[in-house]
Write a protein that binds this DNA or RNA. Structure first.
Lengths: 119, 119
DNA sequence: CAAATATACATAACTTTCTTATGTATAATC
DNA sequence: GATTATACATAAGAAAGTTATGTATATTTG
């Protein structure tokens, strides 16, 4: 069995947008820091989204009308919550489908079809 | 069911090196053009490796000692065959393991665990 | 209570890695 | 003879990260 401390950044690159859109779809609304922590947790520390990658992505998604934002104050500190628009929800669905399809193709390409136990 | 004409390039980016190393591992030796055609065929046209991506990658792999080359003449035209070195074989194995692990993590992250039929 | 760590945002310089375009040349097909 | 396929190579530009830096509040710990 293979133990990986952290995936190479090239791998994460292509899936970041999909992951974020999908999380927003499932969670309803989230703020940036929360997204980084949840991905870290769910991936067992193997995917750590950097702020330099996440915030520009979220800003771009907002600009493209895929998410809307609302700021909330926790004490004096601001939190910016992101929610999917209808367009963003469609995008999330498409992205996830594409990624699922892609992974199936890759498994076939790499002959990983029967990868189940004891790798 | 989702029909995808061609995966977004961001997705392919992170997996190109892995795909190439794995093909070389399975096929013994291949030349560049052959790699592009095989990937195109095996992926049902959904992954088309561009020459501008492939050749620089192959040159880099050679420079790093992961592949060796031998040129063969087919008539007057040259073909450059690439084979894995021992180092390249290890790299291939590692890369494939990492990708398999990564895809499992992504499936979990995206709740695709039970994706089998009529997705 | 001071220091360190965690929370929470943002952006800029730089790097990597591809896309697109271009270039060269032979072989096969129509 | 012209077009398409085979077969290599590289350079300019774009995209999307990483790394570093900056600001500021909240919490934990010694």
């Amino acid at each position: 069995m293979y133990i990986c401390p952290m995936y190479s950044s090239e791998l994460i690159k292509g899936t970041l947008k999909t992951i974020v859109l999908n999380l927003l779809k499932e969670q309803g609304k989230m703020y940036g820091y929360e997204i980084t922590q949840r991905v870290k947790l769910l991936s067992n520390e193997k995917i750590q989204i950097t702020e330099g990658a996440l915030y520009p992505l979220l800003h771009a998604l907002e600009k493209q009308g895929e998410v809307t934002t609302e700021s909330e104050y926790i004490g004096k500190r601001v939190r910016k919550y992101y929610s999917l628009t209808e367009k963003g929800a469609i995008s999330a669905k498409d992205k996830v489908s594409e990624l699922a399809d892609f992974m199936a193709t890759i498994r076939f390409l790499l002959n990983l079809e029967t990868t189940t136990a004891n790798g």
